[in-house]
Design a binder for these strands. Sequence first.
DNA 1: TCTATATTTCGTATAATATAGAAATATATT
DNA 2: AATATATTTCTATATTATACGAAATATAGA
Lengths: 123, 123
Amino acid sequence: MNKEMKQCVDIFKALSDKNRMRILLMLRVRPLCVCEISEVLNIAFSTISAHLKLLRNTGLIEDEKDGRWVIYRLVEGDEFFDDILGSVEEKLHGDKQVLNDRKVVSEITREICALKLKEKQYN
Amino acid sequence: MNKEMKQCVDIFKALSDKNRMRILLMLRVRPLCVCEISEVLNIAFSTISAHLKLLRNTGLIEDEKDGRWVIYRLVEGDEFFDDILGSVEEKLHGDKQVLNDRKVVSEITREICALKLKEKQYN
DNA sequence: TCTATATTTCGTATAATATAGAAATATATT
DNA sequence: AATATATTTCTATATTATACGAAATATAGA
């Protein structure tokens, strides 16, 4: 399989999982750390980490360390991927879960997530 | 997972395989029977049949019987899918394999494929 | 009706993927 | 230095995907 065909298939593979799709749409709002993503998705950290690794390996997101946090953001400038994700957003413009994910993202901060995680430990 | 999110993920799942991608791009040239697709892909009939079934279940292709042949064609009118497949074609406009697939499709007919399959039986 | 042809279904082997929990790593704070 | 926090890696497991060959089905033609 040549390079561009592989890129193409890999991008679709990355998009063919509900949780990764939600992550990518969230990152369209703003860059996020893993605990913020976890606050929205409510799945294990190790699982989120695996999804982020796949998205990074596919070249769709990049990360940057900030203290003990790792901030993930969309890679910009890939015309093909931008078109695809744009079409997705258009198709899902009224999707309740996507709207709610965005709402949560706009309300939380790393600090709030940290507090919430601490609370969870006592339960 | 709600309906549109599921559709979205399912379409990407359908596109996240090299052989299915090639099938869809071939069908953009013209409707094809299974033996014509087989002439291009060179994988087992049962495997092609499984891919076609998945594409049909995802609503991307439809089939029509013509004698003992089954002719597959792209379903038209899904704006989202049309956009996606258009982007793919644009990205892969210079892809050698895709170009060659199209060339083969333009040269073969059901009858030629039938003859070739007969020859294979004697080897 | 018997046979050839085109395709699908079934059974199965193998590989890839998603997920979680525990342990490891890296950084910040005390 | 010791501890807390954020994230990743490792390991195990369950599910799903891809592939093939053999058998089944459906239609056409002799």
